[in-house]
Computed example of a mutant assay.
Amino acid sequence: MFLEKKEVARHNFTKTSGAPVTYSFDEVTFQLQEQHDFAWLRSLGKVFCVFDQQDSGNICFGVEKDGEKKFVKYAGARPLDFSGNPQEAVSRLVAAIPLYAALNHRHLIQLKDHFRTANGYAAVFEWFEGECLHSHWSFAGQAKYNHPDSPFYKYKHLPLEKRLESLDAIFEFHTFVEAQGYVAVDFYDGSILYNFSHDITKICDIDFYRKVPAVNDMGENFWGATRSKAPEEFILGAPINAQTNVFTMGAIAFGLLGGEMDHSFAKWEAGKPLYEVVLRAVSEDRELRYDNVSTFKGFWDEAKGL
């Protein structure tokens, strides 16, 4: 599966009042806050799954036509968990489309098509047979960490070597992002898909990545998950740059190989040399971090050989 979720503040908005509206398409049933026209969805094929518990304003579908599966991300409707303006969600999705061309990479989900509908916008991606490491719709709260069927739990119980290979894919992609003149915004474990049968890692949902120079224009509610955000991603006006991404890469490494926000060596699984590299990456003072992701990855690769 391939999906996205935004972890953002939910205050300062009110949801549309009234009973939810139920929709049924082929194998799936879902609810929205109000009526919406999905006639356009029929032309894309049979709907076999839906991801409707997003607070980003997007609702996502798995569709199949002529034996080919695709993933559809749509903005313009009002999902039950969405408390914003649907047209703002549409604008965000439209603005994200060029990113998938600019940052096209073997570790990134591929955009196949995109188009306007009567009341929204749809982006059609390749389907990837993987599982999202932050599957909040199925494994909320502690179930993410403790339930044996949780993708995050299964990933954390992979052999160390497989997780190191997975992190290599993540670091390689973000070294490429940096080389293209972009910074990653809102990258967290919900942006990581893993195929447990073939040990393949893919990145999804780069909708908020930005061209440099970039600044935090939202303050503490800047896009992203608290467990992965650098200190400057909570400060209005702070620059968001390569050193910000270094922190994010370190935070992801601690999430997948250690104690997540607990940066103690006792929770770390990959040895002292790699621990010291990652600990520097998540320095509160950005000047103590590596200058960029490329340099971080160089030290990471060297430490792996020790």
Rank of each mutant, 00 (worst) to 15 (best):
V47E: 08
P148N: 02
F139T: 02
F30K: 00
V50M: 08
F61C: 03
T29W: 00
D81W: 02
V28W: 03
V90C: 07
G84C: 06
Y155A: 07
A101R: 13
N85Q: 08
P148S: 00
K144P: 13
V90I: 14
Y23S: 12
D149E: 15
W40I: 12
Y100Q: 06
N104F: 05
K73A: 06
H105Y: 04
P98V: 12
F48S: 14
R116P: 04
E68G: 01
G141R: 04
N119A: 14
F115P: 00
F30G: 02
T29Y: 00
L32N: 03
S83M: 11
F128S: 06
D26C: 05
T117Y: 02
Y145P: 08
K46M: 08
P148R: 01
L32H: 00
H105N: 09
Y74G: 02
N85D: 14
E131P: 09
S91E: 09
A123D: 11
W137C: 12
G120K: 00
K144A: 14
L80G: 08
L111Q: 09
A89V: 12
Y145E: 11
Q110I: 06
G141S: 05
N58M: 10
G67C: 04
Q110W: 00
W40M: 06
E68F: 13
F152Y: 15
H136C: 08
A75W: 07
Y100P: 13
L108H: 10
D66S: 13
E68S: 11
N146R: 03
F51V: 02
N119S: 14
F125M: 13
F125Q: 13
A101W: 13
V63R: 15
F25I: 03
G45A: 10
G62W: 04
T29R: 10
C132H: 04
L93T: 15
D37A: 05
A101E: 15
P86D: 03
A89R: 05
N85A: 08
F152T: 10
Y153W: 10
S24D: 14
H136S: 09
K112G: 06
R106C: 08
L41H: 10
E129D: 13
R42N: 14
P151Y: 03
Q142E: 14
P151G: 00
R78A: 11
Q31T: 11
H114K: 04
K69D: 02
F61M: 10
